[in-house]
Amino acid sequence: MARTEIPPGTLHLLILKTLQSGPQHGYGIAQRIAQLSSEVLQVEEGSLYPALQRMLLKGWIAGEWRVSKNNRRARYYRLTTAGKKQLSLELEEFERTVTAIRQVIEPA
């Protein structure tokens, strides 16, 4: 199955959406994005980390080191209040864009 590079600018949205269901570490985020999109969307896994750092800087997410299920130390990211606000903002924006594109390609 061909894998699609994620559209530019949506990585933040995907990460925020993934974290909405609970704290997750970096690998987990990558996995979930792949799973939830039925393996269609492929995050270039490494680029996740600079993105996470940027979101830390913006204050949308917070990181916390915890011991994982299989006894490994891992940094879990969770949404902050600002992050939740950002998620709804970006979702809205995304919806608008998609609706607009749809109107163009599927004229009613």
Binding site: H25, G26, A30, E45, G46, Q53, W65, R72, A74, R75
Partner: peptide
């Protein structure tokens, strides 16, 4: 921390 995080990622992958 970044190094540790990435190491874990590669290992799990």
């Amino acid at each position: 921390e970044l190094r540790e995080e990435m190491e874990l990622h590669l290992e799990l992958k």
